[in-house]
Design a protein around this nucleic acid. Structure first.
Lengths: 163, 163
DNA sequence: GTAGTTGCAAAGATTTTGCTGGCAT
DNA sequence: ATGCCAGCAAAATCTTTGCAACTAC
């Protein structure tokens, strides 16, 4: 359903070239092991916000010899490097998504009826946030905004599960 | 800074009258046991965002015969009733604070160096958020904004504990 | 060759739950 | 009375870690 309309031409191809996140790993001086490469690729191709369990599932599908401990270690490492960001939409487990390049920041709107997550951006908000932090005497390191809302238009029908 | 300027006259007095949250429990038809009353009181008087462990500590100080399981069960119950709100500022454990009456909304700025949480409000942000939701075709049910920052002024010294 | 990585299983940390007795209404 | 509630400890989850073998650079 959420099948990328923006269909980036990120096609990682057979297995020759590094995935986007794999590239970042290299730039950060990380050793590219087989496992790490697979996890980086799964993360690069994820359009959603998978939790560790789900990442493990997707990575395992590509390469059996990956343990969940490695997935935990990897996402933790990538988060420290700023390559990944941890999200918490409630539900106990941490979820991850790739950090945006540059200053591009996106936000989440969660449909309270369906659990579906809509992403959006807003320059004006970025601006306001920076002013707010400044007023409080802080340098903004990062921030997050989550809206919970209900569709105004009631033409919602199928409403399949969220994530 | 955070000391309520609106200083509600919430003085819970000796032990006769119910705490604010205790009152809410009653209105929601919950049985007021000794333990629950103590926990409600601790929550009512909390000016910060204690986690379960901390709530347990504070409640235990007032009444030894409280188990941590009861604290867990109570905050969960109160969250379902909408009396409490669960927060996640990173760091693994859930933290709680009383829901705001009315539409008053406040935000959090987390000092990444100390973990300290500063609360603030901002009319302009409320406005912007509402416009954003509207633009996306949603009725805003609730939202949360968290800033992570680092003190600009380097006169930070004492700042012990976080929480 | 060396330092960083991995798998596995065990340990940790946090939260939930089964059961029996107890208390509020 | 009776049904919700509490304590306790075991279990369930989620995440981290010790250690020996392994691998990228």
């Amino acid at each position: 359903m959420v099948t990328d309309a923006k269909a980036d031409v990120k096609r990682v191809a057979r297995s020759n070239e590094e995935s986007r996140i794999g590239q970042l790993c290299i730039e950060h001086g990380l050793k590219m092991t087989g496992q790490r490469r697979v996890i980086a690729r799964v993360l690069s191709e994820a359009e959603d916000h998978p939790d560790v369990e789900e990442l493990y599932r997707r990575a395992s599908a590509l390469d059996k010899r990956i343990s969940i401990a490695t997935v935990y270690r990897t996402v933790r490492l990538l988060e420290e490097k700023g390559i990944l960001e941890r999200r918490d939409f409630g539900g106990g487990r941490a979820r991850y998504e790739a950090s945006e390049p540059g200053h591009q920041h996106h936000y989440h709107l969660i449909d309270v009826d369906t659990g579906r997550v809509v992403e959006f951006e807003d320059e004006e908000h970025e601006e306001l946030i920076r002013r707010l932090a400044d007023r409080l005497g802080f340098d903004l390191v990062s921030h997050r905004l989550e809206l919970f809302g209900r569709r105004i238009d009631s033409s919602k029908s199928a409403m399949d599960e969220g994530l």
